[in-house]
Amino acid sequence: MGKNHASTQDILRVEHVNNYYTKGGLGILKKAEANQVLHDVSLTIGNDEFFGLVGESGCGKSTLANAILGLIPFEGTIEVAGHAHKTTDRKEFTRHIQAVFQDPLSALNPRRTIGETMREPLMAHGIGSRQEQDRKIAKMLETVGLDASYADRYPKELSGGQRQRVCIGAALILEPDLIIADEAISALDVSVGSQILNLFNTIDVERDFSMLFISHNLNVVYYLCDRIAVMYKGYIVEQGTADAVYNHPGHPYTRLLLSAIPDMQEENDREKELLEKFKAPVAGACAYYHRCPYASDHCHKKPDLVNIAGRGEPEHLVRCWMPTLFDPAGVKEPGMEGGKV
């Protein structure tokens, strides 16, 4: 390692996390087969930083979120504000980390008013008298752009965007260090989704919290986040500042994702990068080998993450044998500088 991972500034530290699920394990005659979902995932999120995680369905992004939230077992180390799951009480842990999910309707209890839902975390942690809680709830509702009178309403009386605002408010009310937003705007209409993005930005100015923002939409992640990681089949294949990953992608998969986003430019302006060459998979090869148009025999071995950033620049990691293939102005020979992580 040897990077500045031990810095006290880090709100989230994920180190060498692996996760497996077993399938076909039912019945005594069937043999359980372990499938690895997360492969040696490491990342850190700094204080007040918005970190974006992108990838296609099944790449492991929600599994990572669930591991960080402590909802599923994993191997490796995960620490939130210096607290590890294994050594911290579950209740204490929830003061540091909260989540916002995709579908706000299923996240809210239909039989409780918004106020009751938002009071629950305060009650559980014994924070404040009833009056103080009322004040906190009213203030939080205003922070997320709702009128204090919404405390007496039920979820069904609210629109999708308003419900998501309530979920964000309920997540923030304990003043956690880290919010995990898993596809938090994917289910919303375009005009409402952009309101929520603006809301995250405004709250960010007012309050001190970090966020792991998970999405399949690279445009949204680039818009909101300071740093981005791209996942493919359980591996982080690229990680760096939003600008580096979005504007100077090093991994062929990131380039594919970027070129696949339908934009509003005229058709002929668009870079036709969408060449995928499906090959027969090779055991032990790079995870992206069978789709990669640039793959060679060299790729029959698994690549490590390599830092392609120049000296003094923020880290830009790419998991590829040819990490500077697309950026000749980038750096020197592959694998030479910027040690492995």
Partner: peptide, 26 residues
Amino acid sequence: RGLIRSIPTRDRKGKELPSIPGRVPS
């Protein structure tokens, strides 16, 4: 116009998205 403006694109990073206020009527 509002719909087009409210979509996050490359050149809008760091700026507030001019979103449409209110909600879709039912």
